[in-house]
């Protein structure tokens, strides 16, 4: 690690925490990727694997919680070390939530794949998931390098995810209005899209935590953004439009 303490074991403990966070991050990234893959390719086996994998993240978070408490009690950390340790607690909580959300997507695979979904919808979900995965990767890479340079861009790009989500939301509503038999599957897909959008939010949270660890300062204030989903209504049936 960058700093050296007189007690080498203290360094070891901090290094251990960082490595466990990275391992959690790797698992969470993998779960998101596989959950969406299972959804798009209607792969029930892969979905079951994702659901089972969540236990790994839960255990890792408990382990990190225990370790951080011991480190705080034993070492009484200050300044950068304290930020590092508190940051570890916060990031592990965010990653654990990402795992839960991915697991929730995987759980819906069975319900969604009972009927054939329009390719266009699944492509949209895949594109949304790619955006969220990029965010997650960039914040975790920033954590690895303790580099705050790209983090503001990550947070600003959260808007893209929101815009994409709003667009998907609208399209799903349209499908449901077209044919009430679509409602079951589309509702599940709507939750999947919402889960992915939430994963993007957790990535933003992690970005703020990493920024704080690296600089000791709060991230500069966010540009105000609008969430349009609250106001989305589909006025006309698509049949009339065409």
């Amino acid at each position: 690690m960058r700093s050296q303490h007189i007690m080498r074991s203290y360094d070891e403990e901090l290094k251990f925490l960082a490595n466990r966070i990275a391992a959690m991050g790797g698992h969470a990234e993998r779960m998101l990727e596989q959950a969406v893959q299972a959804l798009v390719s209607e792969d029930a086996d892969l979905a079951r694997k994702v659901v089972a994998d969540d236990a790994v993240l839960d255990a890792a978070q408990r382990e990190i919680d225990d370790k951080t408490i011991i480190v705080i009690a034993k070492r009484q950390p200050m300044a950068g070390d304290l930020r590092e340790i508190v940051g570890a607690i916060r990031i592990s909580a965010d990653l654990e939530r990402v795992g839960d959300l991915a697991k929730n997507i995987a759980k819906r695979v069975a319900a969604v794949s009972q009927t054939r979904q329009p390719v266009r919808l699944l492509r949209g979900l895949q594109a949304l998931a790619d955006l969220a995965a990029t965010q997650l990767k960039e914040v975790l890479d920033a954590y690895a390098g303790r580099s705050p340079d790209k983090l503001a861009a990550v947070r600003d790009r959260d808007e893209q995810i929101d815009a994409m989500y709003t667009s998907l939301f609208r399209e799903l509503l349209t499908y449901m209005m077209e044919d009430p038999r679509n409602i079951t599957a589309c509702t599940h897909l709507l939750f999947c899209a919402k889960n992915i959008e939430r994963i993007g939010d957790h990535a933003t949270n992690i970005a703020e935590t990493v920024y704080h660890i690296a600089t000791g300062a709060e991230m500069p204030p966010e540009r105000p953004k609008e969430d349009d989903t609250h106001t989305v209504v589909v006025e006309r049936l698509p049949a009339e439009r065409e």
Partner: peptide, 9 residues
């Protein structure tokens, strides 16, 4: 730290 940059299991 390599385990932080290459995170897959």
């Amino acid at each position: 730290a390599l385990p932080l940059r290459f995170r897959t299991p």
